[in-house]
């Protein structure tokens, strides 16, 4: 298969104006990915499926990843020349900025016809609260049908163009998205028979305050 960079260049030539970035993967697996803009994602997916050199006809795995907002501390060093003519001083400035969070959907594509892969596609939402709509790739690969429903259920990404977008694992009246990092699970640890670590700490909140020890 072509490298991810070659595919990106071909995509940019074929779809001028589309957002296609390479996300490199530092792990030994070497599975680099393509970050697509949401606007042209479905056309690009269609192209990847039908292109005779790629023929990525199998969408093997669809999953979501939650990237919450996080505070990044950046240290910038500036060299300030000493007006008295001495050696220049290095002044460190720390700046904090809030990196916006997003929900990411990852697609792993393989070709059964040409026996290559994977090509990893990533789509990102604008934020984690109100801009959570992404184009559904179910019209391109039927395999996405249930998996996108699962991403909708557990992460809260709304797929535009999905034929049947309902909750799949949790019940219909459920309101949270449990795979998000900030999900707070219901507190039903009233009793923990085998004390260990975190579970015991949760259970202890339900224990009555210990009676004062009787002095003999």
């Amino acid at each position: 298969m072509e490298t991810v960079e070659q595919i990106r260049d071909r995509l940019l030539a074929r779809f001028p104006g589309a957002t296609v970035e390479v996300r490199s993967n530092p792990s030994p697996s070497g599975q680099h990915s393509l970050l697509l803009g949401a606007a042209t994602a479905r056309e690009i997916a269609q192209f990847l499926r039908d292109d005779p050199a790629l023929r990525l006809d199998q969408c093997s795995n669809v999953t979501g990843v939650d990237w919450p907002e996080k505070e990044v501390v950046e240290t910038t060093k500036t060299t300030v020349p000493d007006p008295a003519g001495g050696p220049a001083k290095v002044v460190e400035q720390k700046s904090r900025r809030l990196e916006p969070g997003c929900l990411e959907v990852v697609y792993h594509l393989y070709s059964i016809a040409l026996r290559h892969g994977p090509l990893v596609l990533r789509l990102r939402t604008g934020n984690r609260t109100d801009q959570v709509t992404l184009p559904s790739l179910t019209p391109v690969w039927r395999a996405c049908e249930f998996q996108e429903r699962e991403v909708f259920d557990l992460f809260g990404v709304r797929f535009e163009g999905h034929p049947d977008l309902r909750r799949i694992l949790m019940w219909d009246g459920f309101q949270d998205h449990p795979m998000r990092r900030d999900y707070v699970e219901p507190d039903d640890y009233e009793w923990e028979p085998t004390p260990h670590g975190a579970v015991l700490a949760k259970a202890k909140r339900h224990y009555p305050a210990p009676a004062p020890a009787a002095k003999p």
């Binding site: 993967n25 530092p26 792990s27 030994p28 697996s29 599975q31 795995n61 990843v65 990852v106 792993h108």
Partner: peptide
């Protein structure tokens, strides 16, 4: 493991079972 991601799959008796780790 160092930061990164990997997808590994094998032919299980029911089909392609894979794990995707970040």
């Amino acid at each position: 493991p160092k930061a990164g991601e990997a997808y590994g799959r094998i032919e299980g008796p029911k089909g392609e079972i894979g794990f995707y780790l970040i």
